[in-house]
């Protein structure tokens, strides 16, 4: 658990928004991208590119995210 508290926010994962783990907070991912369902029924980002928004669970504003997901670790194994 201490590992998540200290490094959890930097754990590689597929999400397009950052995670917020720290010693004092166990909050996970912090946002979403908005999409539209295609005629096939699958969800795809509006305009073809992911526009992500982040916010908190309190009164904080909803902001456009500038988060860039780090590359996947080699072979998808934990490093």
């Amino acid at each position: 658990m201490e590992a998540i508290d200290s490094k959890g926010a930097t754990f590689a994962n597929s999400a397009l928004v950052p995670a917020g783990y720290s010693k004092t907070s166990h909050v996970g991912l912090t946002g979403y991208w908005v999409g539209k369902y295609a005629p096939t029924g699958d969800l795809a980002p509006i305009g073809g590119t992911y526009v992500t928004y982040t916010t908190d669970s309190g009164s904080g504003a909803v902001v456009k995210s500038t988060y860039k997901r780090p590359a996947m670790p080699a072979k998808g194994l934990p490093n």
Binding site: N13, S14, A15, L16, V17, L29, G31, Y32, W33, V34, G35, K36, Y37, A38, P39, T40, G41, D42, L43, A44, P45, Y50, A71, M72, G76
Partner: peptide, 28 residues
């Protein structure tokens, strides 16, 4: 029917599951 979903707005924290250009989606 898939057509009912057409144009509905949706939200997700992870990439679209059909997006095979995404390295994670492809890998998983």
């Amino acid at each position: 029917p898939a057509g009912v979903l057409y144009n509905a707005i949706g939200f997700s924290p992870v990439p679209a599951t059909t997006d095979m250009t995404d390295e994670y989606v492809k890998f998983f």
